[in-house]
Amino acid sequence: MLYLASQFVWFLLAAFGLGLAMGWIGRDGGKPRLWSAGWSVVAVLWLVGAAASWFQFLNGALATWVETALLFAAVYWLGCACAGLSRRRGAEAPAPSALSALPNETALPGQRPAGLAAPQRGGADDLKLIKGVGRQNEGRLHGLGIWHFEQIAAWSPGNVEWIGGYLAFPGRVEREDWVGQARILAAGGETEFAGRAKAGLVETSRDDGSAGQANVEASAAEAGRAKP
Rank of each mutant, 00 (worst) to 15 (best):
S100N: 06
L116G: 08
G79I: 04
L71F: 01
T106R: 15
C82R: 03
L127G: 05
I146R: 03
K128E: 04
P113H: 12
L99A: 08
G122N: 06
A95F: 08
L141E: 02
R140L: 15
T106H: 15
A101K: 15
P113Y: 08
C82Q: 02
L116H: 12
A107I: 01
A107Q: 15
Q151C: 09
R135Y: 06
T68S: 12
E67T: 04
Q120S: 13
G143M: 03
R89V: 14
C80A: 09
A154N: 12
V75K: 01
A83Q: 06
A114W: 10
L62W: 13
A93F: 14
R140D: 02
G145I: 02
L141I: 04
V133Y: 01
S100K: 11
W147S: 05
L127R: 06
P103Y: 12
S86Y: 10
E150Y: 00
L70H: 03
V133H: 03
G110K: 06
L116T: 10
E92W: 13
L116Q: 15
A73W: 09
K128W: 00
L71R: 04
A69L: 12
A153E: 02
V133K: 03
G139V: 07
G90T: 04
G132E: 05
D126Q: 10
N104I: 11
F149W: 10
W65I: 11
P103D: 11
G79E: 02
G79Y: 05
L62C: 00
F149A: 02
L144Y: 01
N104E: 15
P96C: 02
N104V: 11
L99E: 08
P113E: 09
I152P: 10
P96V: 00
Q136D: 08
L127Q: 05
L141R: 04
L99H: 04
A69V: 12
I130M: 09
R112G: 05
G84S: 09
C82I: 09
P103R: 09
L62I: 08
L127Y: 03
A118V: 14
H142F: 15
S86P: 00
A153P: 04
L99T: 07
E92C: 11
G90C: 09
A114H: 11
A117K: 13
A81W: 14
F72I: 12
R140T: 08
A101C: 13
A91D: 14
R135M: 11
G115E: 07
E92I: 14
L108P: 11
E92R: 14
G122K: 06
L78W: 00
E150C: 07
L102Q: 11
L99I: 13
L102T: 05
A95E: 14
E138L: 13
G115Y: 08
L71Y: 00
V75N: 01
P94F: 07
E150S: 08
G122I: 03
R140A: 10
R121T: 09
D126L: 12
G115L: 10
A95K: 14
G139H: 07
L71A: 05
